[in-house]
Amino acid sequence: MQTKEASGTRPDPADTMSAGSDSETKPEKKTRTPEQVRRRGTARKWGEISLFTGPALLVFLIFVVLPVGLAAYYSFYNWNGIEDLDNFIGLDNYRRAFGDSAFVHALRNNLFVIVMSLLVQLPVALAVALVLNRKFRGRSFMRMVIFAPYILSEVITAVLWLLILQPHGPLDAWMENLGLGGLRELWLADLNLVMWTVFFVVSWKYIGLAIILFLAGLSGVPKDLQEAAAIDGASWWQIQRRINIPLIAPTIRVWMFLSIIGSIQLFDMVWVLTRGGPAGASNTIATYMFQYGFMRSQYGYGSAVAVILFFLSLIAALLYMVFVLRRDNIDEGKRR
């Protein structure tokens, strides 16, 4: 992949030949010129393309593609990051991961966050967006406040909730004041409860993004459609279900994708809140990787976990491209 791309940035006869057929597929190409002029222009064109894309491509290949490739390579070795890389063990690291109940538990935690986000955040965010999608005083202020947690870093969010959730902290006191003292829990230290707490904090930070995205989508729905439906006697709910929700479906699908990818990669928040604890109960794949890769210097094994993480992201992305993007493109094609 890399070498092919590198050679592609150099001018070669095959490219010159195909330049003509390219302009057929993309009609917005610059004005046609005679064959000879075009040939001379092609070399210059490739020079310009290399000049413009070269630096970005270089940085991208060295700092994104290469490390990911190296992770795949290291994952076949038993390696502590210092010694020579000569202890090839094939797929043993992968076998070890899937045989380790702590890893499987981490995997299940990521799945929990994915599923709960779709089951809880999506309906709540959609309902709030639909209700807020009208004009009233203070609307832009409300939108701004609701969106604000998205801008806070996961670390600050985690520290903030760490302080609120601590035993004898403000949450306990508020519950006490409301007569709910009996429902107090060790929110971050209870094996069965900790993932629910983590999910709550994740939702607090990220649900504003969903609401804002949905509101932006809703503002793009033509008003005359809604008015026409209202004149035809459609109820508020019918308008939402038949017009608004279907028309912002692409936005919803993109949000679902972002949410799933984010849930697979969850690290900062969990690390600061619990370090994956108690006893690994709130580990995600990323915190598990961090513990084994860095803290125990098992670079080979940590890399294998990273590769699994990558494949999960890739599967989510491919499913999204196959099912969602294709569908949106077909929709777009129909509209044209």
């Binding site: 190296l70 697979i264 990323a286 990787m289 890769g293 670079y299 940590g302 890399s303 990273a306 890739l314």
Partner: peptide, 17 residues
């Protein structure tokens, strides 16, 4: 495709690099 590479995946080799 870079969107699919979370920094977490690259973290260990990136650190060594």
């Amino acid at each position: 495709l870079g969107l699919m590479f979370p920094i977490g995946v690259a973290a260990l080799p990136l650190y060594l690099l």
